[in-house]
């Protein structure tokens, strides 16, 4: 293992890895998403059939994952911007990362019912 640096293996590195992974995932989702939306130019039936898969419980779980990726990438992206443009940004990067993680957790808990509620009703009846 190479010698440690201030950066390697610390919060800064892991938040960068997570930012990169979420960014790439969102890009691939967006590619598929524009294709599925394009079905409105084929026929209402074609669009509605494909959108029906978005409403199944398994895909609902994927949507929850997508929300997780977007929220982390967005909040951490704002942190990166603050580190670059705010004079005290670099000094507070660690505090800002924990703020990002805390906000992300709160929002993810808040998203459980709206995003997964319909799937739970379908699985367990209501």
């Amino acid at each position: 293992m190479p010698a440690g640096t201030l950066y390697r293996g610390r919060e800064g590195m892991w938040s960068w890895v997570a930012h990169r992974v979420t960014g790439v995932l969102i890009f691939f989702f967006l590619f598929v998403h524009v294709l599925d939306t394009a079905l409105v130019r084929v026929s209402p039936e074609a669009y509605d059939t494909v959108v029906a898969t978005y409403k199944t419980p398994i895909v609902a779980l994927l949507e929850y994952g997508l929300v997780a990726a977007i929220l982390f990438h967005a909040l951490n992206g704002l942190r990166v911007i603050a580190v670059d443009f705010w004079v005290k940004g670099a000094r507070y990067q660690k505090q800002m990362l924990w703020t990002v993680v805390a906000l992300w957790l709160v929002l993810m808990i808040g998203a459980i019912y709206p995003v997964l509620g319909h799937a739970a009703r379908e699985l367990f009846g209501s």
Partner: peptide, 26 residues
């Protein structure tokens, strides 16, 4: 941040979440 989070709120949270999406909605 504004555009995408707004979009997700509209599509997944408000007014019944994904269940309401369909050709008529678009």
């Amino acid at each position: 941040v504004v555009l995408v989070i707004g979009h997700l709120l509209i599509q997944l949270v408000l007014d019944g979440g994904v269940s309401k999406i369909g050709f008529a909605f678009v």
